[in-house]
């Protein structure tokens, strides 16, 4: 049976992809919640995180190699730099590409065009400045299997992704469900005008929502780059998949984005024992089409501004 072949190692790589999709998908879903806008430039937030991580590590470590706790610090620094890079770009994106349109009460289409424009601008700038070849982030750990689960080898990279992603997902869930920022985000998503009557500064919440999504997307960019390297086009496919995941889980729904990411990652990896890898994207978008056919609001449903 081709499905049982390599089941565990395909599941592990599926989970790793799924965690990254989940982190990126949160950026789409949070912004959609407060603005009913798909931020199609989020792919470049992800890319910026990758580059930020790369350059900060270059600057601090140079060609030094790390081991043990040093490696942990190396990864943590990269994630922090990626998150910061993503957060800054997301913040600027909202200020430059969206806020002026909001102030003028521009039609929805204008936001879409602005998003696409911003995306082209950012990745072309990155291509021009940083070259068209992937820059390799020196791995702080070996590619050799670290341990095995049911006979499937597990590389340190997967452990890093799992730990980093799970902590960030738990943290963002907590932020949305029980902090003042989270309540503000949910209130704006459910009824922005009434939120303003409660004293919520809508513009500030929107800005902070972009930054929150940017932190997660940027961190994901670094984690992705750790394995695949960083290059100006790196955002396109993962971000489109993550957008798919957000819709799959129920756009606007925070836990839906997490679930959608994991489901998509696993679903597109598991059949790889049976078919060629060229089928991967066909499967991913096929799943989206089928789910939406039967459940147009996604797995958990569009629940604007709700934690679950």
């Amino acid at each position: 049976m081709c499905f049982t072949q390599n089941f565990w190692s395909l599941l592990i790589s599926g989970l790793a992809d799924g965690f990254l999709y989940a982190l990126i998908a949160l950026g789409y879903t949070l912004v959609y919640g407060v603005l009913q806008l798909i931020n199609f430039a989020h792919s470049e937030v992800f890319m910026s995180g990758g580059f930020a991580g790369y350059f900060v590590l270059q600057a601090t470590l140079g060609s030094h190699t790390t081991s043990g706790w040093g490696s942990v610090g190396y990864v943590a620094l990269g994630i922090a730099a990626g998150a910061a890079g993503g957060g800054v770009v997301a913040f600027l994106l909202e200020r430059v590409a969206y806020r002026p349109l909001r102030r003028r009460k521009a039609p929805r289409l204008a936001f879409l065009i602005s998003a696409i424009g911003a995306s082209y601008f950012l990745y072309n700038i990155a291509g021009k400045e940083f070259g068209h070849n992937a820059l390799e982030i020196p791995a702080p750990f070996t590619n050799l299997p670290w341990f095995s689960i049911f006979g499937a080898p597990v590389q340190a990279y997967y452990v890093v992704i799992a730990i980093a992603a799970i902590s960030m997902l738990l943290l963002v869930d907590r932020v949305v469900s029980s902090t003042k920022l989270g309540k503000g985000i949910r209130a704006v998503a459910q009824d922005a005008e009434t939120a303003s009557l409660m004293g919520v500064n809508i513009n500030r919440i929107i800005s902070q929502t972009f930054v929150l999504g940017g932190l997660l997307g940027g961190a994901a960019g670094f984690l992705f780059g750790l394995n695949a390297g960083v290059v100006y086009t790196m955002g396109f496919t993962p971000a489109l998949k993550a957008f798919t995941a957000a819709v799959l889980g129920g756009i606007g729904n925070v836990r839906g984005a997490m679930l959608g990411g994991l489901v998509l990652g696993i679903a597109e990896n598991l059949p790889m024992g049976c078919v060629q890898t060229a089928w991967r994207d066909v499967i991913a978008y096929g799943i989206l089409a089928i789910v939406l056919l039967f459940r147009p609001t996604g797995i958990l449903g569009e629940r604007l501004g709700r934690a679950a």
Binding site: Q190, D191, L197, R303, G305
Partner: peptide, 12 residues
């Protein structure tokens, strides 16, 4: 301000 139509946050 208690707005017209109450405008409770429905999912809170």
């Amino acid at each position: 301000h208690v707005p017209e139509g109450r405008r409770i946050f429905p999912q809170m």
